[in-house]
Design a protein around this nucleic acid. Structure first.
Length: 508
DNA sequence: TTCTGCTGTATCCGCTATCG
DNA sequence: CGATAGCGGATACAGCAGAA
């Protein structure tokens, strides 16, 4: 018998023999048995569901088997690519809008590829991993995540196949290139490699993204306008005792009791924590944060928001300075909106006479002195624990809680409102900036829901000038009364110090 | 088959940087 | 300081995919 190993299948004999496997596949072949292996061996493996062994044997020994595997792989990959491109919800086929960019995950691309083109996915995974790390998908060299690289590779490949459909990742890369200030040539070269779109398309994408960049703030505005329309704005929802109760209607005992309302403290972690009340205005004391949270039952409830703006400068240098062409300092205004962490829309804007405010709110009472004493104890304990080694191991209260400490501990939601290309150092420019910012002021007819507009000291002065200049307007809107200027941060402290200095020591 | 929308490319034009 | 190349914004146009 010819025991020479053949690289091609044996020719079909004149009389076809039907192979009938007999017996089981031996678990371990002896060396002399290797030569006896043939197609029948592979069939016996398949008969016993040992596909890996059978396919490996065929692939390693028969050119026809290799061709068949390649043909099968190509066919399956093409079929998978078609299916993936037909799947409209696929992560690679999404539109490059703000929501999709926020929710984008590289692993979603990998999941799609694994589902529709498993052979390609397996090949890519095997390319960049070893058997030990193919599960967690981290590089064995620098422990870097491999998902972005594999996802990008798939995105580039499919973009080359169907550039009109697969362009989400390319759009992301274009935006990143634009943010880095890449030149047009960089866009061109990267685009030819399938890594990004052209610069024109990138600019178009960015323009589209900017159109709805303030949508979050506008939706909050619409909620407040709806509440203004239905007359539910000034009412703290589902809290009957905590409605917009006028301060003048409360007796002094009620004030004392309400100021003693304890915050909902969490259990256990700080048992020695003194009960810290809020030291805010009386109106906010009447409403507990938990009742506000529970208020959102059916109608949408807006927590309110404020607007902040400040000057921004951009220097434009002329290459050849002349009388017509000089260096220019462009003074513009940049604004953003900040959603209130602590809801304020239920609070009343009605003015209260100073004479109607109970005396207890001005003079320190017994409770106030007790609270100050507790605070001082905590502060002194912190100082002692920090500076005296003997007390280093002692536990002190690290954070004095107040009624809204949970809300205050959350990160603020900031919404960029873009640059207003008007000069804020002039009254005309400030009026135009105010008019633009008034687009975010909720309104119902001529009635405006006044927002706090933070800025530095100079911005607030300009804001007041704009109010004065428009004081003869025919409506509240034309008088720019939708925004109330408020000095912020260290400017506020500076003003406070100035007032204290003038009040205590005069103009020294 | 036609229309519409999106994308890439080419081109124009003004401005800037560089070189002699 | 003039000439020229290069860059970037704006625009037109062709090609393609998808919907009607």
């Amino acid at each position: 018998m010819d025991y020479k190993r053949r690289l091609t299948p044996v020719k079909t004999p004149r009389k076809t023999k039907i192979f009938r496997p007999v017996g089981s596949t031996p678990s371990k072949f002896r060396i002399q048995d290797v030569k006896a292996k043939n197609v029948g061996y592979a069939c016996r493996c398949i008969e016993h569901y040992e596909y890996k062994k059978a396919f490996t044997f065929l692939y390693n020994n028969y050119a026809g088997a290799r061709r068949a595997v390649e043909h099968l792989v190509k066919k399956e990959v093409r079929k998978g690519v078609r299916n993936l491109l037909d799947y409209k919800e696929g992560s690679l086929l999404k539109k490059c809008n703000l929501e999709n960019i926020k929710n984008f995950r590289w692993t979603a691309i990998l999941a799609d590829v694994a589902k529709y083109i498993p052979i390609l996915y397996a090949a890519l995974i095997a390319t960049v991993t070893s058997p030990s790390n193919e599960k967690d998908l981290r590089s064995r060299i620098r422990n870097k995540a491999l998902a972005p690289g594999i996802g990008l590779a798939v995105a580039v490949l499919l973009h080359l196949y169907s550039p009109m459909k697969v362009k989400f990742v390319q759009g992301l890369n274009s935006i990143e290139l634009w943010r880095c200030g890449a030149q047009r040539k960089a866009f061109l070269h990267m685009n030819q490699l399938g890594l990004c779109t052209s610069k024109n398309t990138a600019l178009r994408l960015i323009s589209q993204l900017r159109v709805h960049s303030d949508e979050d703030l506008m939706s909050l505005k619409r909620v407040i306008e709806h509440q203004m329309e239905t007359g539910t704005l000034g009412l703290p929802v589902c809290v009957e005792d905590a409605t917009d109760t006028d301060i003048s209607e409360l007796s002094s005992e009620e004030f004392v009791q309400s100021s003693g309302t304890e915050a909902p403290t969490s259990s256990g972690s700080l048992p020695e924590l003194p009960a810290m009340d809020d030291f805010d205005d009386s109106v906010s004391e009447n409403v507990e944060p938990d009742t506000i949270e529970s208020a959102s039952d059916s109608a949408p409830h807006s927590p309110g928001y404020c607007i902040t703006w400040d000057n921004v400068g951009k220097m434009i240098k002329a290459c050849h300075q002349s009388t017509e062409r000089q260096n220019k300092m462009m003074l513009w205004a940049l604004a953003y909106g900040a959603v209130n962490r602590i809801p304020t829309t239920h609070l009343s804007d009605s003015c209260v006479k100073a004479a109607d405010i109970p005396l207890q709110k001005f003079l320190p009472m017994e409770e106030d002195i007790t609270e100050i004493k507790k605070r001082m104890e905590i502060i002194v304990a912190r100082i002692i624990q920090k500076n005296m080694p003997y007390f280093h191991s002692c536990t002190v209260v690290s954070h004095i809680r107040h009624s809204f400490w949970r809300e205050s501990s959350k990160k603020s939601k900031v919404i960029n409102l873009g640059v207003c290309q008007e000069n804020p150092s002039t009254t005309t420019g400030t009026i135009k900036i105010m008019e633009q910012l008034h687009e975010y002021v909720p309104r119902q007819g001529d009635d405006l829901f006044q927002l706090v507009c933070f800025g530095d000291g100079l911005s607030c002065e300009r804001h007041n000038d704009a109010h004065m200049a428009r004081s003869n307007g025919e409506s509240r809107l034309s008088k720019l009364q939708g925004l109330q200027p408020q000095v912020q941060e260290f400017h506020k402290r500076m003003l406070h110090m100035q007032i204290c200095k003038k009040g205590c020591w005069g103009n020294l």
